[in-house]
Computed example of a mutant assay.
Amino acid sequence: MGFCYGGGKAIRYTIQNQPQAATVIFYGNPVTYPDELKRLQAPVFAVYGHNDMQFPMPLLQQFQLALNSDNIENDIKIYDGVGHAFWKNMEQIRRGEEPASSAYRQCTDFLRRFFAAQQCQNVP
Protein backbone atom coordinates (compact mmCIF):
# COMPACT_ATOMS: atom_id res chain seq x y z
CA MET A 1 0.00 0.00 0.00
CA GLY A 2 1.26 3.44 -0.81
CA PHE A 3 0.28 7.05 -1.30
CA CYS A 4 1.51 9.31 -4.13
CA TYR A 5 5.10 8.28 -4.91
CA GLY A 6 4.61 5.32 -2.58
CA GLY A 7 1.57 4.16 -4.54
CA GLY A 8 3.64 3.81 -7.69
CA LYS A 9 6.34 2.02 -5.71
CA ALA A 10 3.75 -0.32 -4.15
CA ILE A 11 2.51 -1.68 -7.48
CA ARG A 12 6.04 -2.06 -8.80
CA TYR A 13 7.21 -3.80 -5.62
CA THR A 14 4.28 -6.21 -5.77
CA ILE A 15 4.96 -7.02 -9.42
CA GLN A 16 8.66 -7.65 -8.82
CA ASN A 17 8.75 -9.19 -5.34
CA GLN A 18 5.34 -10.21 -3.97
CA PRO A 19 2.97 -10.97 -6.89
CA GLN A 20 0.68 -12.97 -4.58
CA ALA A 21 0.03 -9.91 -2.36
CA ALA A 22 -2.89 -7.52 -2.81
CA THR A 23 -1.90 -3.99 -3.79
CA VAL A 24 -3.45 -0.70 -2.69
CA ILE A 25 -2.56 2.48 -4.57
CA PHE A 26 -3.61 5.97 -3.54
CA TYR A 27 -2.91 8.28 -6.47
CA GLY A 28 0.35 6.64 -7.45
CA ASN A 29 1.95 6.26 -10.85
CA PRO A 30 0.18 3.27 -12.45
CA VAL A 31 1.77 0.50 -14.48
CA THR A 32 0.09 0.35 -17.88
CA TYR A 33 1.99 -2.48 -19.56
CA PRO A 34 0.15 -5.81 -19.53
CA ASP A 35 3.47 -7.67 -19.87
CA GLU A 36 4.52 -6.29 -16.47
CA LEU A 37 1.15 -6.62 -14.77
CA LYS A 38 0.64 -10.26 -15.80
CA ARG A 39 2.89 -11.38 -12.91
CA LEU A 40 0.25 -10.24 -10.41
CA GLN A 41 -1.68 -13.05 -8.72
CA ALA A 42 -3.81 -10.94 -6.37
CA PRO A 43 -6.24 -8.03 -6.72
CA VAL A 44 -5.44 -4.34 -7.04
CA PHE A 45 -7.37 -1.51 -5.40
CA ALA A 46 -6.57 2.03 -6.56
CA VAL A 47 -7.89 5.48 -5.67
CA TYR A 48 -7.55 8.62 -7.78
CA GLY A 49 -9.10 12.05 -8.05
CA HIS A 50 -10.79 12.91 -11.33
CA ASN A 51 -9.04 16.30 -11.36
CA ASP A 52 -5.55 14.89 -10.73
CA MET A 53 -3.26 16.64 -13.19
CA GLN A 54 -0.45 14.11 -12.58
CA PHE A 55 -2.57 11.12 -13.52
CA PRO A 56 -5.18 12.12 -16.11
CA MET A 57 -8.18 9.99 -16.98
CA PRO A 58 -6.72 8.48 -20.19
CA LEU A 59 -3.76 7.13 -18.18
CA LEU A 60 -6.07 5.66 -15.55
CA GLN A 61 -8.23 4.07 -18.22
CA GLN A 62 -5.11 2.56 -19.77
CA PHE A 63 -4.15 1.17 -16.34
CA GLN A 64 -7.54 -0.48 -15.89
CA LEU A 65 -7.52 -1.85 -19.44
CA ALA A 66 -4.09 -3.37 -18.85
CA LEU A 67 -5.26 -5.01 -15.61
CA ASN A 68 -8.41 -6.30 -17.31
CA SER A 69 -6.47 -7.65 -20.28
CA ASP A 70 -4.48 -9.82 -17.86
CA ASN A 71 -7.64 -10.82 -15.94
CA ILE A 72 -6.33 -9.22 -12.76
CA GLU A 73 -9.11 -8.48 -10.33
CA ASN A 74 -9.19 -4.74 -9.77
CA ASP A 75 -11.24 -1.97 -8.28
CA ILE A 76 -10.22 1.47 -9.52
CA LYS A 77 -12.08 4.28 -7.73
CA ILE A 78 -12.03 7.74 -9.28
CA TYR A 79 -13.59 10.48 -7.20
CA ASP A 80 -15.19 13.48 -8.90
CA GLY A 81 -14.34 17.00 -7.81
CA VAL A 82 -10.96 16.27 -6.25
CA GLY A 83 -7.39 16.17 -7.43
CA HIS A 84 -4.16 14.62 -6.27
CA ALA A 85 -3.66 13.78 -2.59
CA PHE A 86 -7.20 14.60 -1.46
CA TRP A 87 -6.79 12.40 1.64
CA LYS A 88 -4.17 14.07 3.79
CA ASN A 89 -4.70 12.78 7.33
CA MET A 90 -6.85 10.66 9.63
CA GLU A 91 -8.62 13.75 10.98
CA GLN A 92 -10.52 13.85 7.70
CA ILE A 93 -11.79 10.33 8.42
CA ARG A 94 -12.74 11.17 12.02
CA ARG A 95 -14.73 14.16 10.76
CA GLY A 96 -16.40 12.05 8.06
CA GLU A 97 -15.00 14.27 5.30
CA GLU A 98 -15.78 13.04 1.81
CA PRO A 99 -14.44 11.55 -0.37
CA ALA A 100 -11.60 10.66 2.03
CA SER A 101 -13.97 8.72 4.31
CA SER A 102 -15.38 6.73 1.40
CA ALA A 103 -11.89 5.94 0.11
CA TYR A 104 -10.84 4.80 3.59
CA ARG A 105 -13.91 2.54 3.97
CA GLN A 106 -13.51 1.04 0.51
CA CYS A 107 -9.81 0.41 1.07
CA THR A 108 -10.31 -1.29 4.43
CA ASP A 109 -13.21 -3.35 3.03
CA PHE A 110 -11.00 -4.44 0.13
CA LEU A 111 -8.22 -5.52 2.51
CA ARG A 112 -10.63 -7.34 4.84
CA ARG A 113 -12.09 -9.31 1.91
CA PHE A 114 -8.62 -10.18 0.63
CA PHE A 115 -7.32 -11.37 4.00
CA ALA A 116 -10.53 -13.25 4.78
CA ALA A 117 -10.20 -15.11 1.47
CA GLN A 118 -6.56 -15.89 2.29
CA GLN A 119 -7.54 -17.36 5.66
CA CYS A 120 -10.21 -19.52 4.01
CA GLN A 121 -7.65 -20.86 1.54
CA ASN A 122 -5.29 -21.84 4.39
CA VAL A 123 -7.89 -23.79 6.37
CA PRO A 124 -7.47 -27.56 5.90
Rank of each mutant, 00 (worst) to 15 (best):
Y104Q: 09
F45Y: 11
Q62N: 13
N17G: 01
R113L: 13
E97S: 08
Q92E: 11
C4R: 04
M53N: 06
L111S: 06
I76H: 08
R39S: 07
H50K: 11
R94N: 09
C107M: 15
L65N: 12
Q61T: 12
V47F: 03
H50L: 10
G49A: 07
V44W: 00
G49P: 00
L37F: 06
I76L: 15
L37G: 00
R12I: 03
R112A: 15
Q54L: 11
K38M: 13
I76Y: 05
D80R: 07
N68K: 14
T108Y: 09
A66K: 06
Q121I: 08
T32C: 10
L40Q: 01
G8C: 11
D80A: 14
F63C: 11
V47Q: 10
V123N: 01
K38L: 08
M53I: 07
A21E: 04
N29L: 12
K88Y: 01
Y48M: 08
P34I: 15
S101D: 01
G81D: 07
F115M: 08
P99V: 09
P43M: 11
C120K: 09
V47G: 02
F114M: 10
R112F: 02
W87F: 11
Q54M: 12
P34A: 15
R95S: 09
Q41S: 03
Y13H: 13
A42M: 02
A117V: 01
N71G: 02
G7A: 14
G28S: 13
A21D: 05
R95H: 06
A117Y: 02
T108H: 07
V24H: 10
Q20E: 07
A42E: 02
D109R: 12
G83N: 05
G81F: 05
V47T: 09
A21Y: 05
P56W: 05
S69P: 00
E73K: 10
L40I: 00
Y27L: 13
F110S: 12
P34D: 14
P30A: 15
E36T: 11
P30V: 15
N71R: 12
F55G: 02
P58A: 15
V24M: 12
P56R: 14
A116Q: 08
F86L: 06
D35R: 11
N89Y: 01
M1Y: 11
G6S: 10
G49T: 01
T108I: 11
R39A: 14
E73A: 15
Q92C: 04
T108P: 00
N51F: 02
H50C: 03
R112T: 13
M53S: 10
Y13D: 03
F63P: 00
G96D: 03
I78S: 06
G6H: 09
L67A: 12
A66D: 02
P30T: 13
N51C: 04
